[in-house]
Design a protein around this nucleic acid. Sequence first.
DNA 1: GCTATGCTTCGATGCACACCGAACTATGGA
DNA 2: TCCATAGTTCGGTGTGCATCGAAGCATAGC
Lengths: 230, 230
Amino acid sequence: MNNTTSEPNIAVVANLIGDNARAKMLTALLGGKALTATELALEADITSQTASTHLAKLVDGQLLHVRKQGRHKYFQLMNASIAQLLESLLNISASLAPEQVSTGPSDIRLKQARICYDHLAGELGVEVYDALKRQDFIIDNGSETLLTDLGKEFFSSIGFDFSQVKKSKRPICKSCLDWSERRNHLAGILGQWMLNDMFDKGWLERALDSRVINVSNAGLNRIKYHYNLS
Amino acid sequence: MNNTTSEPNIAVVANLIGDNARAKMLTALLGGKALTATELALEADITSQTASTHLAKLVDGQLLHVRKQGRHKYFQLMNASIAQLLESLLNISASLAPEQVSTGPSDIRLKQARICYDHLAGELGVEVYDALKRQDFIIDNGSETLLTDLGKEFFSSIGFDFSQVKKSKRPICKSCLDWSERRNHLAGILGQWMLNDMFDKGWLERALDSRVINVSNAGLNRIKYHYNLS
DNA sequence: GCTATGCTTCGATGCACACCGAACTATGGA
DNA sequence: TCCATAGTTCGGTGTGCATCGAAGCATAGC
């Protein structure tokens, strides 16, 4: 019997993620920022040699892409679907792991506000999401999210340009389950735009350790006012 | 520097999936049917001894759960979120793999109609989805799906009981990207109900090799009429 | 009781691969 | 030109783990 199941082989991708060092690099890259080989080596706690071979595999496996800039090599996640895959892995792992030994200051900041590839996550992320829902700017049937007419008006009024959207294939709204909060935050084009807008306005600031976002009291107040958080 | 990133460790779960034999078992279990250890060993092309250790790991890692029945052990995916994770891995792998050597008859049947954990996938799955969309029973903003009032009426009229839904936390509608068609089909409670309903009515029949669905001409005609396929 | 079947445990084997030291190439700056 | 830094390649080491044969339980049927 020629048992040719033609299902794609998920083992290769999973195996790429399934190594400790590589997994650390990938989660670090969930910060959305492009990182160099040495930065990633530090993150994964390995020498630059081993990092090099790991990164070559990840690029070869099309999970990452590279940009060469002078003598640096900047690595980034291939696309949003890879980021999403990593996020769902994070979610499942978080729910399985009994409780992670969660101590240390970097920990708290990670829980408060962090970047999820290209949008806002953590406590602040879900609070903004809830505020949008409360004001009927988005509807949410449990796992999925749609922008209402009211929401369209609102986002237009605060500077989002809907004409640019048509070019893109990416959904405007997308809910993304937050692994630390176990509640939704907003992804998609709108999620990306909101985060960038907050950076532009100076309300948020990237921490040096990639994924964490620093929020000043002033910035937090502006966000609360702007999005009418409760 | 005590670099305690408290992010969950995605390596362990990914590593569980990242073995060839285990990956085959897991994809086989995407058929939704509970399978015994020997069936899974056959599927993965390994001896029962090795299968036993693999399955123990998968259960220990909470990707599967077991039911003992007499001298048999029935394995099943832990929950829908695991199934969803596997589906997104399938999608990504399918898009990365240039083209799988897709020959053999089991292949064609897999592409035509198959089970995706608990709902219909393959060509037939996306055709039904498109038909629902065309008739404005569901709306779809690109990646997410909502049931319309018209749709509620329709599904009530063909026997779906909406009162049962409130108990469940699962979304009624959920779009699920089909890895072979690269288009959406319907998941969620409604997707599950539709598949079961088709089985109940005798329009579809599980093949022996779990994931494939056999569709008779008569059954296909009934489905076309029932859901008004174009 | 005996036998067949389903699954597990143990022990041994062998391979894949993560890891690092050392040496090498490439880029940028003084 | 020379040095420092970023990254790669090569060779060797060690280990984790998938694999199977053989033997051991457990259940079902006779």
